[in-house]
């Protein structure tokens, strides 16, 4: 399988600020690749570099085997882009913008355009200044999806869309994958990337810190276990691979690494186990581990027992 996007050690600086600090990213042909990271991690910068809108300060990058800085026109005939922050000309209608972008792209399918308008429930006769954020997003999405590009670069494409429209969007992405097209989908919405992506890359502070299929990333992280027992055993938090133990009455909850599951189960069984719920790790957990952010899920002390990702596995 060939790679559509190849980035090796890419550096991008804005003055003194280093936005990308040796970023490696590969997107294989025909896959939907989720590009996950919090705000300011460098997702949009990465996409703009891939579009030749920014110039890299180091490393190498190629899209479809071409240099995006030099071969803009050739490359862009084969790709479609939806910006993260869609700005439209206030005095043009949505329909006019879709047609303009389509023509600049090198042609779009009129039947497909009309289908998409229906699917996303967009009134193309409204002036862009009257559109809400979600509707502006739809204009850009329709313009991109109505083309027959090989590669789609989508920067947080569902921001502002309601759940119904998000669903329509997911349908479109699955369709693209069935047609063998490549999608690079940046997002901070975990469920979206989880539902759509074949592979994921996680970016933090300008570096890809983890990349691989979802299953592979999942097994690296912890399972969330909640159990009701007759007598609460002592020393659970001392077991290797068991973290964030919280005891509330007879209820115990903990975050468990794969290596800690067996010893924990033995201890819980011995303590008289009534009920047990275990949840597969969500991407939220991945984030928590990579960014070390505390939320209500993880007590304040968790940060100290939260080593860097290299210690896991």
């Amino acid at each position: 399988m060939t790679n559509v996007v190849e980035m090796t050690g890419v550096v991008k600086r804005f003055g003194k600020v280093t936005a990308l600090d040796g970023l490696d990213l590969t997107v294989a042909q025909g896959e939907v690749h989720g590009f996950l990271g919090p705000n300011g991690a460098g997702k949009s910068t990465t996409l703009r570099l891939l579009l030749g809108m920014l110039r890299s300060d180091g490393g190498s990058l190629q899209v479809l085997g071409l240099d995006p800085w030099r071969n803009v026109a050739t490359l862009h005939r084969r790709l479609a882009y939806v910006p993260g922050d869609v700005a439209l000309w206030p005095n043009l209608t949505g329909g006019e913008v879709i047609d303009l972008l389509g023509r600049l792209q090198g042609g779009q399918d009129p039947a497909r355009r009309d289908d998409l308008l229906k699917m996303f429930d967009l009134d193309p006769t409204k002036k862009a200044r009257a559109y809400s954020k979600g509707n502006r997003q739809k204009v850009a999405l329709i313009a991109a999806l109505a083309t027959d590009a090989e590669v789609f670069l989508l920067d947080e494409p569902t921001s502002g869309l309601d759940p119904l429209m998000e669903d329509a969007f997911r349908g479109c992405v699955r369709e693209l994958r069935e047609q063998g097209r490549t999608v690079l989908l940046s997002s901070h919405i975990l469920s979206e990337a989880e539902a759509l992506s074949d592979r994921l890359s996680i970016i933090r502070a300008g570096k890809v810190v983890e990349t691989g299929p979802l299953q592979q990333l999942r097994h690296l992280t912890r399972t969330s276990v909640t159990a009701d027992v007759t007598t609460v055993p002592q020393g659970l938090e001392l077991l290797t691979g068991v973290h964030d133990v919280v005891v509330a009455g007879q209820r115990i909850s903990a975050q468990v690494e794969p290596s800690g599951l067996a010893p924990l189960m033995q201890a819980l069984t011995a303590a008289g186990l009534h009920t047990l719920t275990s949840q597969p790790p969500t991407l939220e957990d991945l984030f928590l581990r990579h960014y070390g952010t505390n939320t209500t899920k993880a007590p304040a002390g968790a940060a100290t027992s939260n080593p860097g990702h290299s210690n896991h596995g």
Binding site: W89, T93, D99, D123, T125
Partner: peptide, 26 residues
Amino acid sequence: GAGLGEQRPGPAHGSLQGVWDLAVRL
């Protein structure tokens, strides 16, 4: 955000052929 005139719907299909038309229009 509004002016004095009211918003009227515009064409559903655009006639702008490319960046030239757009520049002239703007």
